[in-house]
């Protein structure tokens, strides 16, 4: 027992180091003065010059802004569609098309991205021939593509949350006189809100990060941030990308820290509530 505990713990520590060392090295070398990136230049480091360079790089800023807009719209639309799909799968019981919907929402999660990208582009080309819309490829087609693969993830998150809570809650609301739409707004929505929020964040991250599908459905003048980064790093490391990575890690870390503090606060409140309930039992 002890020996295996030791073994798995060692694996855990090594695994975590494996996960974090690359990120750490990116952060460290973002403050390196040398153009050689991975050779530390002790004389002139640390320096912020790559951050300054980044902030004046028009191409990257424009791409980041485009990615941001696409991710915001895609995540929001994906949440609406994914919530509907999750509701349908978790609450409508057996209906015609259930298998179809279930299949079409899990398949994009594992589908190799090159195939999804290719198929979406061919669709857009065919649509343009047939109905004249969308006009060429660009931000619109990228957004449509992102919504499609993001909604699959939202569906899974919302569906599992809905499966986790008692359907009797919705029945009780209806029994007390609330019509279906009101049941959704007053009972279902508040209860699945955490799932919707994490689904939105997940969708935003996936959209913000996507390269392969985007490359297929993007056109000239619609380069997203991952596309710009990819074209830069394809031919080697560049120091300003390290700076960019550091900023992104910082943003995520801040978000996680805030949510951890919030969760801990909720946890403490929960413990207090349980003590109250225990007292009530006396």
């Amino acid at each position: 027992m002890r020996a295996r505990g030791l073994f798995t713990r060692t694996a855990l520590v090594l695994g975590l180091m494996f996960l974090y060392l690359p990120i750490l090295s990116m952060i460290v070398f973002s403050f390196n003065n040398s153009r050689l990136v991975t050779v530390w230049d002790p004389a002139h480091s640390p320096t912020l010059k790559w951050y300054v360079a980044l902030m004046s790089n028009e191409q990257i800023l424009r791409a980041a802004w485009l990615s941001m807009r696409i991710a915001l719209i895609s995540a929001s639309a994906a949440v609406v569609l994914g919530t509907l799909a999750g509701m349908a799968l978790a609450r409508l019981g057996a209906f015609r098309g259930r298998m179809l919907l279930a299949g079409m929402t899990t398949a994009p999660i594992v589908m190799p991205e090159v195939i999804t990208g290719l198929s979406l582009l061919l669709l857009f080309v065919a649509m343009q021939q047939l109905i004249g819309w969308p006009k060429g490829v660009g931000a619109v087609t990228i957004t449509l593509a992102h919504i499609t693969f993001c909604m699959a993830y939202v569906t899974v998150v919302v569906q599992s949350r809905l499966s986790g809570f008692d359907e009797a809650l919705e029945e009780a609301a209806m029994d007390l006189g609330a019509r279906p739409l009101r049941v959704f707004l007053r009972i279902t929505l508040p209860l699945i809100l955490p799932a919707i929020a994490s689904g939105w964040l997940l969708a935003f991250t996936l959209s913000w990060d996507d390269l392969v599908i985007t490359q297929f459905v993007a056109g000239p003048g619609s380069s997203t941030l991952p596309m710009v980064i990819f074209s830069k790093v394809r031919f080697g490391v560049t120091p300003d990308v390290n700076a960019l990575a550091t900023i992104m890690v910082l943003i995520v870390a801040t978000g996680i820290a805030i949510s951890t503090v919030w969760m801990r606060y909720r946890q403490q409140r929960r413990v207090r509530d349980l003590q109250l309930a225990a007292l009530a039992n006396l």
Binding site: D166, A172, A173, L191
Partner: peptide
Amino acid sequence: VNMMFQSYALFPH
């Protein structure tokens, strides 16, 4: 008609 559910189904929020 009103119902008292086995799980009570009290709205947790």
